[in-house]
Amino acid sequence: MQLSRRHFFKIMGVATATATVAPAAADTWQSKSPPDPFGCLVDLTRCVGCRKCEEACAEVNHLPTPERAACQCTIFEKKRRPDDKAYTVVNRYFTGTVDENDTPVPTFAKVQCMHCQDPACVSACIVGALTKDETGAVRYNVDKCIGCRYCMVACPFEIPAYEYFDPVTPRVMKCTFCYDRISKDGGLPGCATICPTEALTFGKRNTLLNMAQKRLTQNPGKYIDHIYGEKEAGGTSWLYISAVPFETVNLPVLPDKPMPKLSENIQHSLFSYLWSPIALFSLLGAIMFGTHKAQKPKETPSQKGGRNA
């Protein structure tokens, strides 16, 4: 046993010092959301289900052309999700509203990466391949990715998809918020560009929140009085307003708390400055030191460890 007394106290000292400082520092969790991000407001009352956004998305992101059912109506028969070949899809929901002829009124809802303000995927990503950009875009850097798919586990919107059929260089596939376009002056995401009814409105998130609020107050009764994404999961860059409850169009009910807050809090309070491992190391060292000292008369601890670990 080579642990000297001097050494031991040194380690203990450091451990105690970090132990007292670290937890306090870690508890003050700070949102890392950008100050003035872009956003996109989806007004479900305006969406007509033309699926042009899907087409535009595929075009600007060089994805396969979306399936064109012979008739728009057949494609909506199954509920689709974004996948590795489509960053966004539009689904049709019948929520029980009927028109004056008792015909069910459809609500169409586009779904894509919400670009959370404090994204779970970014927090989860083991290598930091996912980042939240100043523009609001949650960006993916394939050069860092190892393919652990923890982002997919973490995402509360179940968005990131994976190229499961690529054996060597699969990528996580999700809406890029057309970062390359929106980061340029006046640039727009592909889907918003093409939307014929401006069911998608692109702009600064704060502007859009004001605008959405205005639409809610100026059309009482038309909308559910809630801007989805304002607070959900700590806020998202994509915002939705709708005439039907959001859960009926498969938007999940989520807490307002940012997804990463809890896990980051726990991780940081446990491990910031590695205080806890160092403390534990010191503690176990002390115990070991103690037990071996007591047993020393009987045999040499160094032989013990070496031979029988």
Binding site: V48, A192, P196, E198, K204, T207, K214
Partner: peptide
């Protein structure tokens, strides 16, 4: 033009027609 940041509430011509 759509998404005029000075008149965010005002929809573009195409959307105006469609709506």
């Amino acid at each position: 033009d759509a998404f005029n940041s000075e008149h965010p509430e005002r929809i573009g011509l195409k959307a105006a027609y469609h709506q």
